[in-house]
Amino acid sequence: MGIFSRARPLYAVLIAAASGACGSEQHAREPVDTGLLIQQAPPSARGRLSRQDADDVQLRLPPSDEPPGGRHAFYWTRAIYSGYGRRGWWGGGGRGSWATDFPKGDRQFLVVLKRLVRIDAYDFENAISLSDPNLRRFPLIYAVEVGRMDLTDEEVTGLRGFLNAGGMLLVDDFWGGREWAQFEYNIRRVLPGRPIVELPLDHPLFSAYYDIDEIKQVPAQGRGVGGIPTWERPDAQVPHVRGIFDDDGNLMVVINFNTDLGDAWEWAESPYYPLEYSTYAFEIGANMIVYGMSH
């Protein structure tokens, strides 16, 4: 049992976070001290379900004398992948599905993570393409909406190399059989032949920082209150945490299925978002970070 119990006034933390550095995308950055802060320019217009290549994303590396991935021990890194983007309704930017909740969810998660865990983490988001060789400088990456993933061959190669070298991929926010099939198809291209297994609750992931004894379904914003169910599709009522292991039993991929941790992080400051779920999301998020950096 950790010193931080669930009774800790997390909400106060979140309020502080929301009113501080994380609450607005207009927040002025502190001087950049990493070389791999990646931002995305608006993508070219495409059809709603057309595939959007990550290569289309223009990356901008801010000028810096510091080596990429240099000073800090941890960069919360989001994987940029090709997929069927959700343009039009995310923040008006029309970015690909990889950018769901980005960057607010990332920043908000980092603020709380740094309050909970004694970690030297970079304060801001960090996104990188799966086909970028510099991906290897960030051994823990996060991908969302992987049910809309459609990896290019370069991305498959890049992600495979990343995972086989020892990197870990956390995926989140995809629901139901159809999206599972889409993700499974892509991840099998990356790691052919490796089984996807259910992680039991006695797996060390669930006790790396907090003791988690139940896998909760974390709803998207607007769900889980007022009688609205937490699930998004009828075939997505049961949440899962699954994993893919390497030959030595090391966890390579953590799959949060039928759940949306990212939304909980992004909307944790909202009085309408259930505290139960945001608390759980931060707990399992902290566990994934601590586990992923030590195992």
């Binding site: 021990a73 941890f74 865990v117 004694r118 970690i119 030297d120 051994p139 823990l140 020892g166 970070i289 601590v290 992923g292 950096m293 030590s294 195992h295």
Partner: peptide, 8 residues
């Protein structure tokens, strides 16, 4: 503190 060095 948590560091990738531990894992590797």
């Amino acid at each position: 503190e948590p560091r990738h060095e531990v894992k590797f």
